Computed example of a mutant assay.
Amino acid sequence: MMGMLLQYDFMRKAFIVGILLAVIIPCIGMIVVLRRLSMTGDALSHTSLAGVALGLILGINPVLGASVTCIIAAFGIEFIRKRFPKYSEISIAVVMSAGVGLAGVLSGFVSNASNFNSFLFGSIVAITDFELLLVVGISLLVIIVFLMLYKELMYMAFDEGAAQLSGVPVRSINTLFTILTALTVSVASRTVGALIISSLMVIPVTCGMQFGKSYKQTLVYSIIFAVIFTITGLTLSYYKGLKPGGTIVLTGVIFLLFTFLIKGNKFKKGN
């Protein structure tokens, strides 16, 4: 079955991009979830649509436009979050509202509506060579930075204040992590869809939390689950004629619900 899929160039690209994103998105998602900012991906992905529309209007690559707006939005979230530390979710709501409003206005000036709509649910089987190279480059960057700052990011995820007191350069790492999050969301929005990227950030991590007994184990499980969901989703979408992004996410949701049932039954038996 896999051999038949991989004989097509567009499916080979889809699997390469999908697996790379399945590795880096849980790395970002793990930190985001532990910092109680699970909807950050949702806010950034919706804001990326404004960049997509702007790119189409100006005649530049929409992914580049999405990257710029995502970076601005990510720093906006951090700025507002620091102003309201006890109500950090306000930052997400404000930025998402601004992004959706701007995307709605700019989309009215886009001549090719179908091209803009393809970013809503993604088009992983129709990515260009440039977008493939962009995903590879950003994936390598995220992996390298994540490995280099593994301990620092872990400390910051659990307790940013304590990390700062222990000598971790919180401000610099926060800036770098914000940029990486924005870039990851922007390229993922093109491939899996702006409306469902936040699901890919949260669902594999949630599944990993069901099995992992430590930070490292949870991260490894999250990546493994994300890769499995991606391969399964792409395969099903090809043979059943479904949207790849939505199929990948629904695969993860079904697995998560099944996990809840299994864990729930074990808990009851233990009692």
Rank of each mutant, 00 (worst) to 15 (best):
L242W: 15
I77G: 12
V249R: 03
L140V: 11
G55P: 06
S118P: 07
V94M: 14
G137I: 09
G76P: 04
N174H: 01
S189W: 10
G65Y: 12
H46K: 08
L49A: 07
L153N: 04
S214M: 11
L256M: 14
Q7V: 10
A74C: 10
V105A: 11
F121H: 00
I19F: 04
A66Y: 06
I138S: 09
I196V: 15
Y239A: 02
Q210L: 11
Y238L: 07
M96V: 06
S199Q: 10
L102P: 07
M4H: 13
I248A: 11
R81A: 12
T247R: 12
D42G: 01
L165Y: 13
K216N: 13
S111Y: 02
C207E: 04
F211A: 05
N265V: 13
I28K: 03
G76A: 04
V202P: 03
V170S: 02
F255E: 08
C70M: 04
S222F: 04
K266E: 14
V136R: 08
N115W: 06
Q217I: 03
I228S: 07
V192T: 06
G104A: 05
R35P: 10
Q164Y: 10
S172G: 04
V187S: 12
I92F: 09
A50D: 07
F109Q: 13
R83Q: 03
N112I: 02
V110E: 04
A163N: 05
V202Q: 02
K82C: 09
G51E: 01
V145F: 15
I127S: 13
T181S: 15
G246P: 07
L140E: 01
T175Q: 06
V136G: 05
I143E: 08
L165R: 08
S186K: 12
E152S: 09
C70P: 03
T232Q: 02
K263E: 15
I124S: 04
F10R: 05
V32F: 01
A50W: 14
V52M: 03
